[in-house]
Design a binder for these strands. Structure first.
Lengths: 135, 135
DNA sequence: ACAAAAATGATAATTATTTTTATTTTTATA
DNA sequence: TATAAAAATAAAAATAATTATCATTTTTGT
């Protein structure tokens, strides 16, 4: 059954291998390493395909690109207000259960929690600018 | 001091009057009702300006537009997985305090919580399609 | 009143994403 | 295995949202 085409499989494998929250073009660049002539549209199409399946989700960072993520629902995110990087984080103690229950009780299909702040990298390269939009 | 230009003021007033989470072009259309020759660029510029001040925040709905919101931090959001509408919601009991404390403790500057599901409107116009991307 | 700084409108440019179309690959079935 | 139908693809064009540019206007501080 669900035997995907080679390109389609590649997109998922690349997503699973990348330990980050790539934008579509990052996935594209990564795919090209093994499939040099894959098209960007194919990456977009397959990310949308997997999103519909629930295998891939979208996170929204501080830049204006969509970021994609495998394994949603298991973790929340820290989003750097300076560089836009998205990092995984375990839910704070007890919170996951609380939100799961609440969600079920109210009939929501899912939830997303993000914390905003400087990532370690930007923290050490401090220049007092805690805002992407600054020039 | 902070005596803004008339256009800049208008953008904020419109935002405060609109009881929704408008995209930039929605704010633009609303502004044009009183200032017919205001420019879309001015709306974008001033939304960015207020965002930097922390007076306006961005929410992300299910469509690919940025949605803007005044009074962040007081409420969380329900995002309709069908029409993309963003609605305000009070934080579930005790949750706000918990998250505020956690945030302060960990040194994050803010957080955002969203629940996903069908809005009442889409619930009643049921057609089994719980996904914007469906055709 | 006047010079300097900031904001604006109009439009062009950019960027991300989606659509289109002709072609190729995959799938199902005979 | 051969073959017709369906699905997926590459490449490019189209679309849509946002940002940048620049000449002009408005605001600010003195």
């Amino acid at each position: 059954m669900a035997n995907f085409s080679s390109r389609r499989q590649a997109v998922l494998e690349v997503m699973q291998k990348m330990r980050c929250h790539p934008s579509a073009d990052m996935v594209y660049e990564e795919c090209r390493k093994t499939i040099p002539n894959i098209s960007l549209a194919t990456v977009y199409r397959n990310l949308a395909f997997y999103e519909k399946q629930g295998l891939v989700g979208r996170v929204v960072g501080c830049d204006n690109k969509e970021r994609y993520d495998v394994e949603m629902d298991t973790h929340c995110h820290i989003i750097c207000t300076k560089c836009g990087e998205v990092m995984d984080m375990d839910y704070p103690q007890k919170l996951k259960q609380y939100l799961d229950d609440y969600c079920k009780q109210e009939g929501f299909s899912k939830f997303g929690l993000s914390f905003y702040g400087l990532c370690d990298n930007c923290k050490s390269n401090q220049n007092g600018n805690d805002n992407l939009k600054e020039l």
